[in-house]
């Protein structure tokens, strides 16, 4: 069942998200050097690369948790670098961090409510119903504290919370990290369903091969720099990419 409750794809060729010449890091330590990336409406874009390549740092920089030292990041042609996360989230882009991505002391329902924090309060129950329709398991456990739930269920809560604002672009940082193979398939399935409903997805994934298979385009990041980019298939077929980043 696919729910078409996200906005229809319009202005298809204009990039939703565009990062150019981004350099960023923690304190004096620069991790990203002159990185570029773009995501167009309705796309799945996969960001891969070895550990420490700066993938998560790029995600945090895009979402305003880190501020770039130089470069520009625009969302729908609007500059967002230097803005705070709570301002960026209102523009239609939501982010699911890799770890600590649910409020463990809050119930499932309260987590979803916090996902819809910026909404009019009357709108929240309707959005919640949509998320429950997408993840029926969450409805069964809506009164449970997420701290007591499994990794796969928490990932669902995290994704569900991010969908509450009806975003056009979802940023997923390692959605399958630490999950069993069966659950990994389920998570990827969910991502496909969400994307099929018109939502663009930018994801960082350890399962590089799997994520490139479903991605429209991909970027390979290494040592904080762009190495390769192309369509998912091109990257899968590239012998260098396969040897260096996809494990042979």
């Amino acid at each position: 069942m696919i729910l078409r409750f996200w906005k229809p794809i319009s202005e298809a060729s204009m990039p939703l998200l565009k990062a150019e010449g981004v350099s960023a890091g923690y304190g004096d330590m620069e991790i990203l050097h002159d990185v570029h990336l773009s995501v167009e409406a309705g796309e799945i874009v996969s960001l891969i690369g070895p550990n420490g390549a700066g993938k998560s740092t790029l995600m945090k920089t895009i979402f305003g948790l880190l501020h770039p030292k130089s470069g520009t990041i625009t969302y729908r042609d609007q500059p967002i670098h230097g803005r705070k996360p709570h301002e960026i989230v209102g523009l239609g882009m939501c982010y699911v961090p890799q770890v600590a991505n649910v409020f463990v002391t809050l119930t499932v329902e309260e987590n979803l409510d916090m996902g819809g924090y910026l909404l009019n309060e009357r709108e929240i129950p309707k959005r919640r119903e949509r998320v429950y329709a997408l993840f029926p398991k969450l409805y069964e456990r809506r009164r449970q504290r997420t701290g007591k739930m499994s990794g796969g269920e928490r990932q669902m809560v995290a994704m569900g919370s991010a969908l509450m604002l009806d975003p056009d672009l979802l940023l997923l940082d390692e959605p399958s990290a630490g999950l069993s193979p069966k659950l990994v398939d389920e998570i990827f399935d969910n991502i496909r369903r969400i994307n099929a409903a018109g939502l663009a997805v930018l994801m960082v994934e350890q399962n590089a091969r799997k994520s490139l298979q479903m991605a429209s385009r991909g970027y390979v990041l290494a040592n904080g720099e762009n190495r390769y980019d192309g369509t998912g298939q091109e990257l899968l077929d590239d012998p260098d990419v396969a040897r260096l980043y996809l494990g042979g």
């Binding site: 948790l65 996360p85 709570h86 989230v89």
Partner: peptide, 16 residues
């Protein structure tokens, strides 16, 4: 409660 639980995530969810 959300901010007490996880201030980073609170910001990400749009909480000022």
């Amino acid at each position: 409660r959300a901010t007490a639980d996880n201030p980073h995530l609170a910001q990400i969810r749009g909480i000022n």
